[in-house]
Design a protein around this nucleic acid. Structure first.
Length: 804
DNA sequence: AGCACGCCGACT
DNA sequence: GTCGGCGTGCTC
């Protein structure tokens, strides 16, 4: 068993397989599957994951592993096979799968150096490069390149006086502080204490501390606790009584934060009914998927909390996924309040180091609950008792980069392995999940009423076309304005929601209709007000707003579309007395600003909270009695079969913010398409009818959940190349699938050109096609050479959420 | 992905 | 004749 199979950190088709390495004698007992190691690979030195130990290899001239990068395996066997499964499911490289499962801090960083060979001094080098090595015998490759002396250095390298070395570095260091512990036992300490001079009071205090309990303590903290200066401790170190050491400490993103402890709430009869099967499932150690379908405000979170409590009591662990958790500090509060230090939190707002530390807490079994966004599904728990996915329908659970996985699928896979339940919770379940629940694949649990039986808010739909006909050209309908004034008088609060998705501001000429587009992509440029620039969101191209129209020379060129800033200005014009808090990317980019704004709002420092998607969920403030949706239909017309579903979900979600407590709530939805069923039914909060209606449409058009879909997108600098490759792929896929499958294409992608690359796609709709995966893999293999050399790109997404 | 090797054009 | 362009193929 002195050979290790290693997946190397080279994301390419040809290297997507294990490479065998000899384990040097000194490391034989140390190297284990799941460890990261550094290995020689060609002339380089890179990181790899040991996936297997074996005693023989078919490859003759094995190289040796250089060194392990971990003390113990970083991927358990379960995780290794999960990574395997993930790469197969998503047709991505194994190395990408492993890296997606670990915090980014563990991804290796590579540095290339030029170093003086042993026994060579700068004088031995040719004069032109001598200067480079005067300060240090090692310079980075980049420095060498910048010095413009690469040629001379390469000559030196071939003569052997300098050599090129590669280093593998960790991205983030563990944070360490100096600590001390006693170098003798209690008896010896007591003896030593006797021998101290009478005036060494402080030293005696320190020794007393260690007599009581000899555990390593951070010097800084100890000094504070005993109210002494660190010099006293240093003195004892010098005398050899105490021994100095380093201790790993965690960066705690919630340091200095007190979370008020909460107790389990009394459940309503409805909640009792819903939680019973879950608790039973936990008790029976049974793998089962529950769809917890509960209207907004029905108390889903309390069910999560009590289920988790049961899991903890059984000595097991829980994963809770929440969409974009940094955006719901309230949620963190609820979990930390109930489970205190048992909770690790992982979200995008943390630094790489903080994320790594939270991950370490999980790995070292110091916590038993993790609350986090998508990637928290890979939390390295080994004794999972439950997985909860809140707001199950959220599209952010699908990763759009490789590996293109959906956290829901991973959750179900992990739960099968751990024999534990999964709870998918939502007020507006995805059609896929609801259909499965109806078929009995998932266990449906319903909470049709709000807690304390509060009524769902009254919803009124305003036809903005009517408003326009009536001469109101502002973005606020008469009714909304009326109600806004009313709230301000009554000192109640309003949430104004601006649906930005799918309608960004663009620059248009009012005379000829010219719209400023990106020169590299077939898409209009987005207007950014703060720097008066127009920017392409796909390639990063940027230019300033032209003073006159490029097409017709008119000066009537202005931006269209509504940003939150614009709404704020308008609001100020019509309601100068209103105090407004605006929440968007601009105002919440700074760390903690999100929470601060919400706190301000909660404390009543504003009448109106104005924002985009980020205020759609999680807000639960008693004083909100009015919710206004300024333009409900902006994403209804996107080229996406899920646009109705998303509109319905969003509107229902937003409406749910109003009247959650004693005061009744009201919702105003402004729209240009009031007749659309997704808007009408969201006003009635009638998910069941929406479900029926939408399912009919999906059935007719053969979309999920009736069919699965897979999308292949081909891009190339030359239009014809993209078309012809897509053409070949389409007919190949067609030939490999059954008659029931529908293969559409080649068609131009909804965004036909990005960064000067033409994009064509092939859409596959299918029910059961065991041959699809291998067909797609063969395609990727087939075009391997062209992908590598010819600048061809082929992206495969099974179960895409974005069809662009 | 790098990197070396190797085969052709334009230069001191 | 050589330097260096980047196509081709390999990395245990």
């Amino acid at each position: 068993m002195n050979i290790a199979s290693v997946i190397v950190d080279v994301p390419a088709k040809q290297t997507d397989r294990p490479f065998d390495y000899l384990i040097p004698d000194s490391l034989v007992e140390i190297i284990k599957p799941g460890m990261r190691v550094t290995v020689p690979f060609g002339p380089r030195k890179i990181q790899g994951f040991v996936v297997e130990l074996k005693s023989a290899s078919s490859f003759k001239q094995l190289k040796k592993i250089i060194e392990p990068m971990d003390l113990s395996p970083i991927l358990s066997n379960e995780m290794l096979s999960l990574g395997d499964w993930l790469s197969k499911q998503t047709l991505s490289y194994k190395i990408s799968a492993y890296q997606a499962m670990l915090p980014a801090a563990l991804k290796a960083k590579y540095e290339k150096y030029i170093k003086l060979s042993a026994g060579t001094s700068p004088e031995n080098l040719s004069p032109e490069v001598q200067a480079l090595f005067l300060k240090s015998s090692k310079i980075t490759w980049d420095e060498a390149k910048a010095s413009d002396k690469l040629h001379a250095l390469q000559k030196e390298a071939s003569s052997g006086s300098v050599e090129i070395v590669y280093e593998v570095k960790e991205r983030v260091k563990k944070k360490k502080l100096k600590s001390v512990y006693a170098g003798m036992n209690a008896e010896e300490l007591k003896e030593y204490r006797q021998s101290l001079s009478a005036q060494a009071r402080k030293q005696a205090d320190v020794i007393d501390y260690f007599i009581k309990d000899n555990k390593p303590s951070i010097i800084r903290d100890l000094a504070k606790e005993l109210n002494i200066s660190s010099a006293v401790i240093k003195e004892l170190v010098k005398k050899g009584v105490l021994i100095e050491d380093e201790m790993e400490i965690y960066r705690d993103p919630f340091e200095n934060r007190q979370f008020e402890r909460t107790e389990a709430l009394l459940l309503t009869a409805e909640q009792e009914n819903a939680i019973a099967p879950i608790l039973q499932s936990i008790e029976d150690i049974r793998n089962e998927v529950f769809l917890l379908y509960g209207v907004t405000g029905s108390g889903k979170t309390e069910i999560y909390l009590q289920s988790i409590q049961k899991v903890i009591n059984a000595g097991k662990e829980a994963i809770v996924l929440v969409p974009e958790i940094s955006l719901t500090p309230q949620m963190v509060k609820r979990f930390k309040g109930r489970f205190g230090n048992e909770v690790a939190v992982m979200h995008s707002g943390l630094s790489a180091g903080e994320k790594y530390d939270e991950w370490r807490k999980i790995q070292r079994k110091e916590v038993s609950v993790v609350v986090g966004a998508r990637s928290a599904i890979f939390a390295p728990f080994e004794n999972l008792g439950i997985i909860i996915i809140d707001e199950e329908h959220e599209t952010s659970y699908k990763q759009e980069e490789n590996p293109k996985y959906h956290a829901r699928d991973v959750a179900i896979k992990r739960a099968e392995g751990s024999n534990c339940p999964v709870i998918l919770g939502s007020a507006t379940p995805s059609l896929e999940s609801f259909a499965r629940a109806k078929k009995g694949v998932y266990h449906l649990l319903s909470l049709p009423k709000r807690m304390n039986n509060q009524a769902l808010p009254a919803v009124e739909i305003i036809d903005m076309r009517e408003e326009l006909r009536g001469g109101n050209r502002s973005m606020f309908s008469v009714v909304l304005l009326e109600k806004l004034k009313e709230r301000i008088e009554k000192k109640e609060q309003t949430v104004l929601f601006l649906n930005k998705r799918g309608h960004s501001s663009f620059v248009m000429c009012r005379d000829c209709g010219y719209v400023a587009g990106c020169p590299n992509c077939d898409i209009s440029l987005t207007y950014h007000r703060y720097n008066q620039q127009m920017k392409c969101h796909y390639c990063g191209y940027e230019e300033s707003v032209p003073a006159i129209c490029r097409e017709c020379g008119s000066e009537h060129i202005r931006y269209f579309g509504t940003g939150t800033q614009k709404v704020e200005e308008e609001l100020h014009k019509v309601l100068p007395e209103a105090r407004v808090i605006r929440m968007d990317i601009d105002t919440t980019s700074r760390k903690g600003s999100h929470e601060k704004l919400l706190d301000q709002f909660q404390e009543g420092h504003a009448d109106i909270l104005l924002g985009t998607q980020m205020i759609a969920k999680g807000l639960d403030f008693p004083n909100i009695t009015l919710v206004g949706v300024l333009s409900a239909d902006t994403m209804l017309h996107l080229p996406d079969f899920r646009s109705s579903e998303k509109t319905f979900q969003l509107l229902t979600q937003v409406s749910g913010r109003a009247g959650r407590h004693e005061l009744p709530g009201e919702v105003i939805i402004q729209t240009y398409s009031p007749e659309h069923y997704s808007i009408g039914l969201s006003a009635l909060q009638d998910f069941d009818r929406f479900y029926e209606q939408e399912m009919m449409i999906r059935k007719v058009h053969k979309y999920p959940p009736f069919y699965y879909i897979a999308l292949v997108t081909v891009s190339h600098e030359q239009l014809m190349k993209s078309v012809s490759v897509t053409e070949k792929i389409t007919s190949y896929v067609q030939s490999k699938l059954s008659k029931d499958a529908i293969v559409l294409g080649p068609v131009a992608s909804p965004i036909p050109r990005i960064n000067n690359r033409y994009r064509y796609q092939c859409l596959i709709k299918y029910k059961r096609e065991p041959g699809l995966q291998s067909a797609l893999k063969i395609i990727l293999d087939q075009y391997q050479q062209e992908i590598a050399s010819n600048g061809l790109q082929i992206a495969v997404d099974v179960n895409p959420y974005i069809l662009m």
